[in-house]
């Protein structure tokens, strides 16, 4: 195993390229953006927030930087909203060339609907099902609407959604 070369040849994609591209495409609809640098070899981690209606165009925009690799959709369960975090990466396959892109969007608790991204990334299906079953999010146009984690005939409060849930551990 050789020690890594200290200088890397060629121009690499940067987090700023992605944020600039999104600013150009979405203008004021890009609600928030920031770039962090993590790791010993500083690599870019991009965080952006968009309105939920723009989720499919946002994923589409990411394809202009090569095929994104989908990791997972995480969910922050706030009292009035659920914030979804779509974790993807572009520029993989090159030494220290990958950029982690996190696209966030807010869903008001009164209207937990969002469009599926499976048309662009079929591998997101299980993650979308998980958000439906465990957080009560409604994924519009999901290619397969059956439960995956919960029983098919399950009726009740979504698995780990925080509100209105009585925890067994908290019951005296």
């Amino acid at each position: 195993m050789d020690k890594i070369r200290k200088t890397q040849g060629g121009e690499k994609m940067k987090g700023t390229d992605i944020v600039s591209s999104f600013k150009k495409k979405f203008g004021k609809k890009l609600l928030e953006s920031k770039i962090e640098q993590n790791g010993k070899i500083k690599y870019d981690v991009v965080w952006m927030k968009i309105p939920k209606k723009e989720i499919v165009p946002a994923i589409q925009q990411l394809f202009t930087f090569g095929t994104p690799h989908f990791a997972v959709i995480s969910a922050n369960d706030y009292p009035d909203k659920i914030e979804l975090v779509y974790e993807l990466s572009v520029g993989w396959g090159e030494k220290a060339g990958e950029i982690l892109v996190n696209i966030k969007t807010d869903l008001a608790k009164k209207d937990l609907k969002i469009h599926s991204i499976c048309e662009l990334i079929p591998g997101a299906l299980i993650s979308e099902k998980e958000k439906q079953e465990l957080f009560g999010v409604k994924i519009v146009n999901i290619p397969d609407n059956r439960n995956f984690f919960l029983p098919q005939d399950f009726k009740g409060h979504p698995g780990i959604k925080k509100d209105k849930r009585v925890d067994m551990l908290e019951v005296e």
């Binding site: 050789d2 010993k40 993989w92």
Partner: peptide, 21 residues
Amino acid sequence: VPKDVRVDQPYAAYADMDVKP
């Protein structure tokens, strides 16, 4: 598909060596 986090975003000691997918 050459997808390997140790290469794509090297961390820990992987950042000091030439790991290939």
